[in-house]
């Protein structure tokens, strides 16, 4: 499209203004959430964003009186561990399906692809029964197990590995490099954009996951942030400024990561979205 840097025609200014208003509206919930988290109880019902006597009391109260730190670290641990597993296994399977010929290859691929059709909501009931029968209710393993491999990731990685030229891999084979080493050392580095896309989706998915953690975890020490946040309204008699503080704490980590890695994250999301 035609992009004249200097052109400042009125149409563009109008467009820009509308986009700016839209952006402000989009950010409003987040801004009010943070603003309320710094206010005293009797101030949160007025519309001013910043009060002169802002307070950290809510944060202190929350950290001292709830298990919020535990929930944050649970969420972090579960999301990171799951992401790591997904990256490893999904790319291993995707690589194998893309770069090897073997009997049953097609069936395996279609089978794994077909799991994309099955919604989590359908699986939680059987998962719950399995977890109960194997004593996994209310354990980290129970929380993590259903998510450590995904059909989506396998599909995504297979797409990308198909774009890796066979010559590279053959050259290594001739040099006598082991197959697993070829995968780790040669193939994986060639698909880092895909890996980072998968990592973003998996991490975000686990960080915000609610239904399964709600079902499988029962003691507060095992809650993830969303489950903890949902439960604490009942236990702490929902004071809005405290709930906003909790919501802010849940939002802060992803927000910070985004502000640092903005460009990569958007690129990753686009990549994952379009190829997946």
């Amino acid at each position: 499209m035609n992009k004249n840097k200097a052109s400042l025609n009125p149409k563009k200014i109008i467009i820009w203004t509308f986009l700016f208003i839209g952006a402000v509206i989009m950010m409003t919930p987040i801004i009010f959430m943070f603003s309320a988290s710094f206010k005293y109880n009797d101030q949160i019902y007025d519309l001013t964003l910043f009060t002169s006597d802002f307070t950290l009391d809510n944060y202190i109260y929350l950290l001292e009186n709830t298990d919020f730190i535990v929930w944050l670290s649970n969420s972090l641990f579960i999301s990171l561990f799951t992401t790591f597993c997904v990256l490893f296994f999904d790319s291993l399977v995707g690589y194998t399906l893309a770069k090897f010929q073997f009997n049953g290859q097609k069936i395996v691929f279609i089978a794994i692809l077909s799991t994309l059709m099955i919604p989590t909501e359908m699986l939680v009931i059987p998962w719950y029964i399995i977890a109960r029968d194997f004593g996994l209710l209310d354990t980290y393993l129970g929380l993590i197990l259903p998510g450590i491999m995904t059909g989506f990731g396998v599909f995504l990685m297979k797409q990308f590995f198909e774009g890796v030229p066979d010559d590279y891999l053959e050259a290594a084979r001739i040099d006598g490099v082991g197959e697993f080493t070829i995968f780790i050392r040669i193939a994986l580095p060639l698909v880092t954009p895909a890996l980072s896309a998968l990592a973003i989706f998996t991490f975000l998915g686990n960080w915000t996951a609610f239904l399964w953690p709600l079902i499988v975890s029962s003691s507060a020490e095992l809650f993830t942030v969303p489950v903890g946040l949902a439960s604490f309204s009942g236990e702490f008699q929902s004071d809005w400024e405290l709930i906003m503080t909790g919501a802010a704490l849940a939002t802060l980590p992803t927000l910070l990561v985004f502000l640092i890695l903005q460009r990569y994250i958007i690129r990753g999301v686009v990549l994952g979205g379009l190829k997946g």
């Binding site: 919930p29 987040i30 009010f32 959430m33 960080w207 915000t208 609610f210 942030v225 969303p226 489950v227 946040l229 949902a230 309204s233 709930i243 906003m244 909790g246 919501a247 802010a248 849940a250 939002t251 992803t254 927000l255």
Partner: peptide, 9 residues
């Protein structure tokens, strides 16, 4: 953002 957190907001 986390849907649960924003639902409360």
């Amino acid at each position: 953002t986390t849907a649960v957190a924003m639902a409360w907001v």
